[in-house]
Design a protein around this nucleic acid. Structure first.
Lengths: 327, 327
DNA sequence: CTGAAAGCGCTTACAG
DNA sequence: CTGAAAGCGCTTACAG
């Protein structure tokens, strides 16, 4: 009842194991008749290739690291979910690597995954990653990053058009009559976060940054600053959904209602936003597509040496946290 | 600059590679002097064992599947987070397997991970798992399940004392003057979910189940049923935090305030509850401990054949979603 | 198009 | 306590 090996298949099929191997991995080099016979035998024996042995020989496995700062954060959860599906479609298995926000650990992960002959890796960083530092690791030359880099870094990336996302948020808010719009970015060293903040700064008539530079406690601080204002903005854009949640919760605990007293729009489009109170209006990232694209970029890098940069389009998901400005 | 192999280490150290292997994996059988010399050489060469080769030879790898229904759900995210940490402490790497709520896929995962010579697996199910079905897979005999089984099933489990958790929720609510307490379980076929529901039924003076049997849309349905009531309960206990979120959101969208109009307590203790609006009062599962225990149970199963069942203690995390009953 | 051989990097009886 | 050999289950030049 134990897995038959390739030798077993060869014996039963009456061919050499090298032929079995070819029939499985490079079918076109084997005579059709032979191939079909072998495949039938393999099937009947319930043969499955031993990926460990294959990887050892090939020096390339099907194990790919997914390096995230915090799998507890639903954004990375959604990313991991779509990545897993996309990876499995191509026969890869995702190995979960969590840095806990300490991107330095990325190196150790790359090293240990290199020992597992990972064909490539996926990194969703929490800070700006230095391409040079990445390239010090063999596997670091075969990663795709879910963030942006300066061009010519040699690292493939998937991102969304963040400036456009902020623009969508403004269009939505302005359509509801809002003119005075503040921004809460929370910390996050990624280019993505910087891009969103910069886009806000460029678009706002009178930019107002709330809760700047506070990490845990962004919501609390932003709410305090908001309350201290002589003239309060009528709307707040958050740099991501998690900080939007934090801000709304803190505002709520201080008696400020959303969207009654102030409208809030998030950024990311987490499914969770639908269960929030109120439902979160948010700039939607196509997270599912990001997973698919990341895997495709990685394959294209490994197979053809192409360093691709894909920028996806955002859309708006309107729920209950935004309302027409009173008056 | 490529990883040196064990042969390289042996050559430099002037010993046979079998001795190097022993110095590394069974140090006590090697003469101290020899061992230290080998270790020094290995260190200086930057030697790291090739886990693939070792696994192939030993027929046991360091790759352990974490099988979850939905990594998008923060509960499984938190579980995955602690599991990863606990696993890495012992040199294991977690392979992410998501069934998408289709527990049938568990079998396929067990099979493919068996081919990777996984030493054991961890399963967080979404339905009652049949131990018999599990045992049809070789790896199915070496899993620990994060749910409960009938005793004697031969499957190690970690859970929390769910009845005690419901009791804590009642104590808290009754302490606030609540007498009329409803329950929303949402679907979920696990023993854990059933236990919570049963505990509620046992404890409530006049049991009232809301939103029974609806899966997506539990919150909506529960809110509708709540609103249709002539005499509304003053408090609602939810079978888990995610449904608590759903209920509060739906209630909120229909103008029913929490805790103003009704108190809500969740179950699980997700970190996210702190960012909810209002902050969620909830029965706290020691999720971190569950990860650690799961790994420990697995090792104990594999090393000593012991089938352990650990039941952890809940606690209460009180936040803003519960208040004294008016009057 | 197929076979025979070598070898990926380890571990583990088996001798000595 | 250490060495030499065999072998885990594959893949891939190399012949033919």
């Amino acid at each position: 009842m134990t897995q038959p090996s390739i030798d077993e298949v060869a014996r039963v099929a009456g061919v050499h194991k090298s032929t079995v191997s070819r029939a499985l991995s490079r079918p076109e080099v084997v005579r059709e008749e032979t191939r079909e016979h072998i495949l039938r035998v393999a099937e009947s024996l319930g043969y499955e290739i031993n990926p460990l042995a294959a990887a050892l020989r090939r020096k390339s496995s099907n194990l790919v690291p997914l390096i995230v700062p915090d799998i507890t954060n639903p954004f990375f959860g959604e990313l991991a979910s779509t990545m897993t599906a996309a990876a499995e479609e191509h026969g890869y298995r995702l190995v979960l690597c969590v840095t806990d926000g300490a991107d330095e650990r990325t190196g150790a992960y790359l090293e240990s995954m290199q020992n597992l002959y990972a064909p490539f890796g996926i990194i969703a960083p929490s800070t700006r990653i230095d391409p040079e530092a990445l390239h010090r690791f063999p596997l670091g030359k075969r990663v795709v990053v879910v963030d942006k880099f300066a061009d010519g870094s040699g690292v493939p990336t998937v991102t969304m058009d963040n400036a456009r996302g902020i623009e969508l948020a403004f269009e939505h808010l302005r359509g509801l009559g809002h003119r005075s719009i503040a921004y809460v970015s929370g910390i996050s060293g990624t280019y993505t976060a910087a891009e969103r903040r910069a886009a806000y700064l460029a678009l706002a008539e009178q930019p107002l940054l709330l809760g700047e530079g506070t990490q845990p406690g962004t919501g609390k601080r932003a709410a305090e600053e908001f309350l201290a204002l002589a003239e309060r903005p009528t709307a707040i854009v958050a740099g991501n959904d998690m900080v939007a949640f934090g801000v709304i919760a803190e505002l709520g605990s201080r008696g400020v209602g959303v969207p009654g007293d102030v409208s809030v729009v998030g950024f990311d489009g987490l499914a969770l936003g639908e269960r929030y109170n109120p439902g979160l209006t948010t700039v939607q990232q196509p997270i599912n597509e990001m997973g698919r694209v990341a895997i495709a970029l990685a394959r294209n890098l490994v197979d053809n040496g192409e360093v691709g940069h894909v920028v996806l389009e955002p859309s708006m998901t309107v729920r209950g946290s935004t309302a027409r400005v009173p008056g």
